[in-house]
Design a protein around this nucleic acid. Structure first.
Length: 632
RNA sequence: GCCGCCAUAGCUCAGUCGGUAGAGCGGCUGAUUUGUAAUCAGCAGGUCGAGAGUUCAAUUCUCUCUGGCGGCUCCA
C-alpha cells in the first residue's frame, strides 16, 4: 500500500505503521515539528496506525487545527493537575477557544493558591513527559469508568451510538475524549494559566462551575513572547491612556457614567463633525427628543416588556417615567406627530442624545461598557422598495468610515432572539433582506443566531480592543415591528395608508465605546485631525517666547489646536513631554527660526527635525487635518 | 448580578510582624535660558476607600458596604 504526502510524493507503507513514523520517513524536519497529523483529512494522533492506503499531512502549532489540538491537550493537563490537587473535583469539559482554552470543573470555589498548586502539578507532568495514550473502550466500561462523574456520563449519553468511545490516559489520569492530542506533555512546556472564575450555570438548578482559563505554547520561548505582547497591549489600555492624556474620568459616585474631560471632548466633537458631514450629504435631518418618557411609551415600543431590566426608572406625581435606553421611541413619536406622505420618504431622522442603560455592575468596563452613552444614531423611515438602496448606502458609508481610522472590523448577522416582537414571517423577510444586502455588498459576515434586538434583526460591526476582545460598534437594524406598534402610517401614491419600515442604524456606535477602542487601536497616537493638541510650539529661550506665541496664534487663526510650552523647562525635557503626550507636531522656535521666519518641525515618533517656512508648515498641517489623514 | 482579587499623596508604587506613613514622577516656589526623549534646589500634598467590631491602641486583624480589576453572563 502507498501513502501520499502534501508535496505529492507517495511512499510505500506496511499496514500498522504509525503516522509519526510515516512522517519521519517522508521528512525528518517536518516530522520534528508535527504534533499530530491529518489522515485522509481527519486529525489523528501521531501514534495512530494506518491500515490501508491514504493521504497524510503533518499538523504543527502553526496550523489552526494543530494549535487547537495543543490547546485541548493543555486543557487535559489542567484537568489532571486539578484532580491531583483537589481529588473531589469533577472535570466537565475543556475545549479550545479563539485565544486559548478553558476547563470547567464542578468543585468548591478556587483560590489563587489553588492555582499555584495546579500550576506546580502541571510543571511536574511536563517534566515527566507523560504520553497522551488513546484507548477505545466499550460504552459500558466507559460508563463504569466515569460512574462518579455525572457530567461525563451526560456526554457519553449524548454521543452518537455509532461513534467509538475513546479515552486518553496521561500519567495516571484518564479523560473521556475524542482526541487527538499532542504525543506527550513535554509539548506543553509553554502552558500558562490565565485565571479562574465562576461561570453562570446553563440551567438554574445546576451548581455554578469553576472555569480555569489558559493558553498553551510548545516552548517557553513562545510563551515569553506571548506574555510580552500582552504586557505591551496592557499599556495601550484606553483606561491607562485616557488618564495619561486626560480624556475622561470616572467617579465612585457615578459608576459607569463617564465624565468627558476637555481633551476627550475635542475628540468627541471631531468625531461628531465627521459623521455629521455625512448626514448632510445623505439628506438626513436632525431631531432632539426627551430623555424621559412616560411608561406607556415604552409599553408601546415593547421596551417595558423586553428591556425593562436594563432601564433606569423614575417616578414623579405617582407617575412612572423611564430614561430612554434607545432613541427609537422619540423618532416614532415625531413621525406620528402629523400625517405623512410617501413623498417624504425616505425620512431620515438623526439624533445624538444621551441614553441611559442599567448595565450590571460587574459588566462595566472603562468607556467600552458604560451606563450613559451617546450613539451617532438615526432612524430611517422607508418604504419596502427603499430598504435595499438605503442599506447599500449605509454599508458603503460604514466601510469608508472605518477605513479612515484603519480599523479592522468584522460583521455579524444577528437574528431573532428567544423572545421577539411580531410575527415569524416578518422576521424571515427582514433576515433575508439583510443577508441579501450583505452578500450584494460583498461583506463577509458571521451568522449570530438569537442575538438580534427584540424588535429587529441586525447587522453588527465589531472591532477589537488591545487584548483582542471584540466590541460591537456600528449596527444596522431592520424593523417591521415598532412602526406598527406606534401605528405609524403614510399615504401612498395609491391613496391608501401604509406602514413604513424603520431602519435603526449607528455608524461608529457610541462616542464612548468608539473612543475607547480607537484609543487602543491608535495607542493614543491620534491622527492630526483628532489630536486634542495638534501642534505644540517650543521657544528655545524666553527671548523666543513672543515668536513662538506668534506661530501658535497663526495656527489657531486657521482653526488648528496649537499651544506654547514656555521655556522654564529645558528644551529636551519639553520635547520628551510632547512625545509622551503624543502630540503630532512639535515645533521649535529659536534664533535661526526667528531670523528667517521658519519653524523647525518634529513629527511625532521621528527623531529628526525638518525646517520649513511658517506658511509651508501651516499648509501642511491644515491639509492633513482637512483630509483627515492618518499620519501627521 | 455571580466567582476571585485589589483599594496607601494627582499618578506609579514602597512600608507598618497592631504604636496614625515614604520614594519617584507630577504640582508650587526659586535659581538656571537651555537647539530636539528628563537642569538643580526647596516646599506643599495623605483622618492609608467608607462604616462597624476586636484591642490600651487599627492604615495593619475581622465583618459589612462602596468602587475598581480579571473572568462569567450581557452588550453599543
Amino acid at each position: 500500500m502507498e501513502v501520499q504526502f502534501p508535496d505529492g510524493r507517495r511512499l510505500p507503507a506496511h499496514p500498522g505503521i504509525s503516522v509519526g513514523e510515516l512522517l519521519g520517513t517522508w521528512s525528518p524536519e517536518k516530522a520534528r515539528v508535527a504534533l499530530a497529523a491529518l489522515w485522509n483529512g481527519k486529525p489523528v494522533d501521531l501514534a495512530f496506525r494506518v491500515q490501508e492506503a491514504g493521504s497524510l499531512a503533518p499538523l504543527t502549532f502553526e496550523d489552526r487545527a494543530g494549535w487547537e489540538i495543543l490547546q485541548h491537550s493543555s486543557a487535559h493537563l489542567v484537568a489532571k493537575a486539578v484532580v491531583e490537587t483537589i481529588p473531589e473535583a469533577l472535570p466537565t469539559h475543556g475545549p479550545p477557544t479563539d485565544d486559548g482554552f478553558f476547563y470547567d470543573f464542578d468543585v468548591r470555589p478556587l483560590t489563587p493558591s489553588d492555582l499555584d498548586a495546579i500550576d506546580a502539578a502541571m510543571r511536574r507532568s511536563v517534566e515527566g513527559r507523560e504520553r497522551f495514550a488513546r484507548r477505545e473502550i466499550g460504552r459500558a466500561s466507559a460508563e463504569a469508568l466515569f460512574a462518579k462523574n455525572p457530567y461525563k456520563l451526560r456526554y457519553l449519553a449524548e454521543a452518537p451510538a455509532s461513534e467509538p468511545v475513546s479515552v486518553y490516559d496521561t500519567g495516571g489520569f484518564t479523560d473521556l475524549c475524542r482526541g487527538p492530542h499532542v504525543p506527550d506533555t513535554h509539548w506543553l512546556e509553554g502552558v500558562h494559566l490565565l485565571g479562574f472564575s465562576a461561570i453562570t450555570p446553563d440551567r438554574p438548578e445546576s451548581r455554578p462551575l469553576q472555569r480555569i482559563r489558559g493558553v498553551g505554547f510548545p516552548t517557553r520561548a513562545e510563551l515569553a513572547r506571548y506574555l510580552k505582547i500582552r504586557e505591551e497591549a496592557a499599556a495601550r489600555d484606553h483606561r491607562v491612556i485616557g488618564q495619561r492624556q486626560e480624556l475622561f474620568v470616572f467617579a465612585d459616585h457615578a459608576p459607569g457614567f463617564p465624565f468627558w474631560l476637555p481633551n476627550g471632548m475635542v475628540i468627541v466633537r471631531e468625531l461628531e463633525k465627521f459623521v455629521t458631514e455625512h448626514l448632510r450629504t445623505a439628506s438626513y435631518s436632525e431631531i432632539r427628543t426627551p430623555l424621559l418618557f412616560a411608561r406607556s411609551v415604552f409599553e408601546t415600543s415593547g421596551h417595558w416588556d423586553h428591556y425593562r431590566e436594563n432601564m433606569f426608572v423614575s417616578a414623579i406625581e405617582g407617575k412612572e417615567y423611564g430614561w430612554k435606553p434607545m432613541n427609537c421611541p422619540g423618532a416614532m413619536l415625531i413621525f406620528g406627530s402629523r400625517a405623512r406622505s410617501y413623498r417624504e420618504l425616505p425620512l431620515r431622522f438623526a439624533e445624538f442624545a444621551p441614553l441611559h442603560r442599567y448595565e450590571p455592575s460587574g459588566t462595566l468596563h472603562g468607556l467600552l461598557r458604560v451606563r450613559e452613552l451617546v450613539q451617532d444614531d438615526a432612524h430611517l423611515f422607508v418604504t419596502e422598495d427603499q430598504i435595499e438602496p438605503e442599506m447599500r448606502v449605509l454599508l458603503a458609508w460604514i466601510k469608508e468610515a472605518y477605513a479612515t481610522f484603519r480599523l479592522d472590523w468584522s460583521a455579524e448577522l444577528s437574528t431573532r432572539p428567544a423572545t421577539f416582537l411580531g410575527e415569524s414571517a416578518d422576521w424571515d423577510r427582514a433576515e433575508a433582506v439583510l443577508t441579501r444586502v450583505l452578500d450584494g455588498a460583498g461583506v463577509a459576515f458571521r451568522p449570530s443566531a438569537g442575538e438580534g434586538a427584540f424588535y429587529a434583526p441586525k447587522i453588527d460591526f465589531h472591532v477589537r480592543d488591545s487584548l483582542g476582545r471584540p466590541w460591537q460598534t456600528g449596527t444596522i437594524q431592520l424593523d417591521y415591528q415598532m412602526p406598527r406598534r406606534f401605528r405609524l402610517e403614510y399615504q401612498g401614491a395609491d391613496g391608501h395608508l401604509h406602514t413604513p419600515v424603520v431602519i435603526h442604524r449607528t455608524i461608529l456606535g457610541t462616542w464612548e465605546r468608539f473612543v475607547g477602542v480607537l484609543t487602543e487601536h491608535l495607542a493614543g497616537r491620534w491622527p492630526p485631525w483628532l489630536a486634542p493638541v495638534q501642534v505644540r510650539v517650543l521657544p528655545v529661550t524666553d527671548a523666543h517666547g513672543a515668536a513662538a506665541r506668534g506661530v501658535a496664534d497663526e495656527l489657531s487663526a486657521e482653526g488648528l489646536r496649537a499651544e506654547v510650552a514656555p521655556s522654564d523647562e529645558s528644551l529636551p525635557k519639553r520635547v520628551r513631554a510632547a512625545e509622551l503626550d503624543r502630540v503630532p507636531y512639535v515645533v521649535v522656535v529659536g534664533d535661526r527660526e526667528v531670523a528667517d521666519g521658519s519653524v523647525s518641525v518634529r513629527l511625532r515618533g521621528s527623531k529628526a527635525a525638518q525646517s520649513m517656512s511658517r506658511a509651508e508648515f501651516l499648509a501642511h498641517v491644515a491639509g492633513k487635518v482637512r483630509r483627515r489623514e492618518f499620519e501627521p
